[in-house]
């Protein structure tokens, strides 16, 4: 295993209009790590991921993926990474098979190879009865499964997952967690953003918490826990400055009543 970092960010700044979103992110991730990237809504999680996959080119600072600069080599990077977005617009008049064929072709895979892989993967996600059904009728979780497959179809070295578990049932969550774990064991790097603390706690080798565009905690769960021996949920609340949610909830109910 080479020790050059797979993902590296240096002094990354990004703003939408005049609103700064990222205020100097520094991080480096080496191969085979599962990084859990968490933060409150609007903290800049998805923005960071979008910059890393080359979707947002207008940032300042340095960003490299697989040793390639995101600004100059974004096409090459896109070929070698996998990305599962939070809420992608699936072409829902297509069937899963047609959709995966399309995505596979864009990655330059052979027709037979895609078909074989897609059938197998759909079967493993228990979608084999729906291989040739239009996705218009699919539930959120079923779409998410198709999306996961499409992001991993070309067997990428680095995988960016933005809320990959949303809408999945409990069994599928267990399955995806296990898949992530085993992908990492085979040397792939996974950059994972989520709101589900218990999942992050279990699968991540390293947890990065960001708030208001800045990294406020970085380390293994054990290291973070060492500072304050609580659950990740409490730690998260404490670090992002939103304690006393009971009071807020009471206020919310009170406002509704008036």
């Amino acid at each position: 295993m080479n020790m050059t970092p797979v993902i590296q960010l240096q002094d990354l700044y990004k703003s939408y209009g005049s609103t700064p979103v990222l205020k100097g992110i520094n991080l480096s991730v080496s191969a085979g790590q599962v990084v859990g990237y968490i933060g409150p809504n609007g903290a800049g999680k998805s923005t960071t991921i979008k910059i890393l996959i080359g979707m947002l080119p207008d940032y300042t600072g340095e960003a490299t993926v697989l040793g390639l600069d995101v600004k100059t080599n974004s096409l090459e990077i896109k070929r070698r990474i996998g990305y599962v977005p939070e809420n992608a617009a699936l072409y829902d008049t297509l069937t899963p098979m047609e959709y995966l064929q399309f995505i596979g072709q864009l990655y330059g895979l052979e027709f037979e190879q895609i078909e074989r892989k897609a059938l197998e993967l759909l079967r493993l996600f228990q979608l084999n009865d729906y291989t040739n059904a239009r996705m218009t009728t699919f539930s959120k979780g079923m779409r998410q499964k198709v999306l996961l497959i499409s992001g991993l179809l070309h067997n990428p070295d680095v995988i960016f997952l933005d809320e990959p578990l949303s809408g999945l049932d409990a069994n599928a969550v267990v399955l995806v967690k296990e898949i992530i774990r085993q992908l990492a064991n085979s040397g792939k790097t996974i950059f994972y953003s989520s709101h589900l603390m218990d999942v992050v706690e279990k699968i991540s080798d390293r947890i990065i918490i960001i708030n208001q565009g800045q990294i406020i905690a970085d380390g293994t769960f054990a290291e973070l826990q060492h500072q304050r021996p609580e659950s990740l949920e409490q730690l998260f609340a404490e670090l992002t400055g939103s304690e006393g949610q009971t009071g807020v909830a009471e206020e919310f109910i009170h406002t509704l009543k008036n």
Partner: peptide
């Protein structure tokens, strides 16, 4: 090859809409 794949899928979707 990418261009062809995109055209093919777009036509397929247009015909199903």
């Amino acid at each position: 090859d990418q261009l062809r794949a995109i055209v093919q899928v777009k036509l397929m979707m247009d015909n199903r809409r």
